[in-house]
Design a protein around this nucleic acid. Structure first.
Lengths: 356, 356
DNA sequence: GTGAAAGCGCTAACAC
DNA sequence: GTGTTAGCGCTTTCAC
């Protein structure tokens, strides 16, 4: 018998490697007078153990302050209750709102969020995905639809449910929930054209490696061409996502093209900067220049004049993404879903009104 | 022989439970012609394996697309590279900036962040701590110094490094890094008094279960009394953390006490609301009323007039907290540390200037 | 409804 | 420098 021989080859060293006094399931089992598996069942599927057993186990758990080791549990069950979430940044409520939507849904179902921030770097994104997969997350939620090929393959091969958010993409990894950035920017530009603006500048956050920003620019450009608006290089600018850079980009645009009639900034923080800059320069909004933003942050409606913007369903995107992942995990849903949550043009006072 | 008898009692069912085609360390080992432990060493301590071996293993890893199962690895080594971070919310750059400081430091050292958001609920905080401990995180970073007793005990008994942030507390769980909210609010109130304001209102975010807010109010009150300023119930208000609520609280304070000379709002988002509300009411800032904020968000310097505020070292708090945890994990530091990162009064144009 | 045995996929410890 | 063995602390499977 190979097995027996091997086992007897050497005396078991009987060494224990247990970390500092952690309470084990066996300790609880002993105190409760049951087996380890019964403790496990009491904790995970309370309904299948007898009432009296459950009480005894629960008492032992409380008395010892037992906290199950999830590493062991997850390894044994080959599943976790962790969802990996990868976002470009936390600077702006855009993603914070979505993450909140996710944690709300996930938390109530006993799932946790393992967060990765990429700073718009696709290398970082890939690193995070590898790491998440290494931790055997039960699902992954990404931002945008632009990923390295390795990321896509890793994810597809893993068989883990994946949701790409904040975009509408043609060839998704798995599932998608968001809205069309192109359509949203197009819609706002069209709206501005209807309000009578012909010379409409556009400011976006850096487009490299950011498909949302690229799509927004594309939407603006399509409208510019469709409606025969003024098309000039000076009417486009990139600015990093801070109020100050929004102000600066707006100022530079005015300098290079003093006749600009309206500026559409692809983020309310950028637009805030423009509003302040206009004030500093003594420009009246919307009489001298119209200003429009994107996202409808809380602050947009407080500005004087209130900011015209595009409202995006950030929280709902997060909560929906979370729900889609959970459904897939539970086998309640199959096939790739692509949910368009839409957007909304919010006309306020920072742009001229459209004709009635 | 008890061992042998047990083993032979039943034929080994030879069943495999392996999840969908995941590549195992044994697969890599076989392809590379080495043992599993050599693969493990190549991946974790490359310097201790021979060059040729390392190359062979690396090639096999790449070829098979092997991603180590961290659950198994962490269980076996009884340690993880995950740090639990618990914050009240993501709505405002306050915590986002700190989290960024943490992910920057932690990420570069191969550690990850497991994020828990409490919405200012101590019950939630405890739940998150239990969950983090269950995952055997290598460290925990909390916000504030107010926790349920159970949280404190759990953490202390766990032996895991803990940092409480954004406060200076007397009886910390383990380590602390932040600044004194009381001192900061006191300093700003004193500054306003020096600028000639006698009737100084104070608006804070809800204080219940928020020791930072409580401390700020205490600092304001201490200064009011020390400098013999006007003390009236109407000069204090709580407002949830949105621009709109800041505007509303400011408006209500003006209504209840039209003679208020300056309002100190304990968050720049609240102060932003006040700035907008002042503009809406046609009040000149700082001539008719002075407005001061807290945190020095990017937007503070852009306001017209620019906002006087308290600058807090948010990013540094996060990065320092992360570093402290890492040092402790590596045994480079012992004993409880309490790091005061300080703050700074930033005088701008939304309040009168102090006499020279 | 409960228990015994056998893993989950790695790494620590020790041997060579 | 590399291999063998025995766990890490749970849950799965199967038996009763």
């Amino acid at each position: 018998m190979a097995v027996a021989r091997t086992l007897m080859k050497r005396e078991p060293p009987a060494r224990k490697r247990r970390g500092h006094g952690a309470v084990l399931i066996s300790d609880v089992a002993r105190l409760a007078g049951v087996s380890a598996i019964t403790v496990s069942r009491t904790l995970n599927k309370p309904q299948i153990v007898a009432d009296s057993t459950r009480r005894a186990v629960q008492a032992a758990v409380d008395r010892l302050g037992y906290i199950p080791n999830r590493l062991a549990g997850n390894l044994a069950s080959t599943q976790t209750r962790t969802i990996g979430v990868v976002i470009p940044s936390l600077f702006s409520n855009i993603f914070a709102d979505s993450v909140r939507g996710m944690t709300d849904v996930l938390g109530s179902e006993g799932y946790q969020v393992l967060l990765g921030v990429t700073d718009d770097s696709l290398d970082m994104e890939t690193k995070h995905v590898v790491s998440l997969l290494g931790q055997r997350v039960a699902g992954v939620i990404l931002t945008g639809g632009m990923h390295q090929r390795r990321t896509r393959e890793l994810l597809k091969n893993s068989g883990v449910p994946v949701v790409e958010t904040n975009v509408m993409v043609r060839s998704s990894i798995d599932m998608v929930v968001g809205y069309s950035n192109e359509a949203a920017a197009y819609a706002m530009t069209r709206h501005l054209a209807r309000c009578g603006y012909r010379r409409i500048g556009f400011v976006t956050t850096p487009m490299e490696r950011n498909d949302r920003a690229q799509a927004r620019r594309a939407g603006w450009l399509r409208a510019v061409r469709e409606f025969g608006l003024v098309e000039r290089a000076g009417l486009f600018r990139e600015a990093t996502l801070t109020v100050s850079h929004g102000a600066r980009a707006f100022g530079e645009m005015l300098a290079s093209d003093p006749d600009v009639e309206a500026v559409f900034l692809a983020h309310d923080m950028l637009a805030s900067g423009a509003m302040f800059e206009a004030r500093r320069r003594g420009l009246r909004v919307p009489d001298d220049v119209g200003i429009a933003g994107f996202d409808d942050l809380d602050i947009a409606q407080e500005f004087v004049p209130a900011l015209t913007t595009v409202r995006t369903p950030r929280y709902a995107i997060g909560s929906t993404a979370a729900r889609m992942v959970l459904q897939r995990i539970r086998g309640e849903a199959t096939g790739s879903a692509c949910v368009d949550m839409g957007f909304e043009i919010v006309q306020r006072d920072s742009t001229r009104r459209p004709p009635a």
